[in-house]
Design a protein around this nucleic acid. Sequence first.
DNA 1: GTTCATAGTTAGGTAGCCTAACAGTTAGGG
DNA 2: CCCTAACTGTTAGGCTACCTAACTATGAAC
Lengths: 149, 149
Amino acid sequence: MNTLEPAPAALQTLAQDFREALRHSVYLVRRLDAEGELSAAQLSTLKMLLGDGVRVGEIARNLGVRVPSATEQIIKLEKAGLVRRDPDPDDSRAVRVVLTAEGRAAVDSANERRNAVMAGILETLTDDDRRALAAALPVIEKINGTLHN
Amino acid sequence: MNTLEPAPAALQTLAQDFREALRHSVYLVRRLDAEGELSAAQLSTLKMLLGDGVRVGEIARNLGVRVPSATEQIIKLEKAGLVRRDPDPDDSRAVRVVLTAEGRAAVDSANERRNAVMAGILETLTDDDRRALAAALPVIEKINGTLHN
DNA sequence: GTTCATAGTTAGGTAGCCTAACAGTTAGGG
DNA sequence: CCCTAACTGTTAGGCTACCTAACTATGAAC
């Protein structure tokens, strides 16, 4: 659209290719998550709780989902004994979700298992490949950051 | 685990970081798909049909889903008038799924819209960022390729 | 010409997301 | 004060996209 850009065609191509790569990666993420005791959504939720108690709204915002979706995950996790819902001392409307000891253990083991699978894949790459990947990571994170408005 | 590796810790870290980046990217993909006339699953299915007629099993394999899931998508697309199911002349058990003219148009427009959004994001990066990203793309594709067994 | 394998559909179930409607709590203005 | 508006979270109901199991129909092998 903008003829002042140096190489708009290259940008389009990169956009297309990157988008395609991400689309395929969704399947990879799916496979990493498939054989786990914890679903992707649950693991993401738990990870967020590693600090102190977190409110439901904040969990939803960080996950990029609506509040009811976060509530749903939290209820499942609570039933599984991985989180606890404490009343917020400062605001009795709010809830502070905190990890239980089991929850913490579950995060650790799920993370380790997934990382091991990914490390296994990365092991098959060349050093140059891994360097290129590492160099692009901050960029990908920057792109992902676009989401947080 | 393997002490013979030159830098196992770095590999673990890269695995962890890359996994994290991909996990976040799922939300980006979700956003790209959200405001579209075509769902992600439908667009992926349609894209695969740009060549000649493709069999249901092949579509499922390429999408990384089971055959009934592919059937389900195809039926929806057929109802929307975007694909046709022709009998396979060589094997009457099989079905050849082909794009209709509307289907082709839908792929094009959906692709263009999504690419434009992604290009808009990439535009905000530096040249170095884009170079790093472009360099990593083949690596990411290689990793994704791991899926196809 | 049974028997076994293969291609696809149908049926029924689950996870994870959504919006709309609700209940309880807080905060501000008359 | 209290009444209204804003906010936090839950409940209810619905959708999409996946799954497994069971089925139909055709093809292949012997």
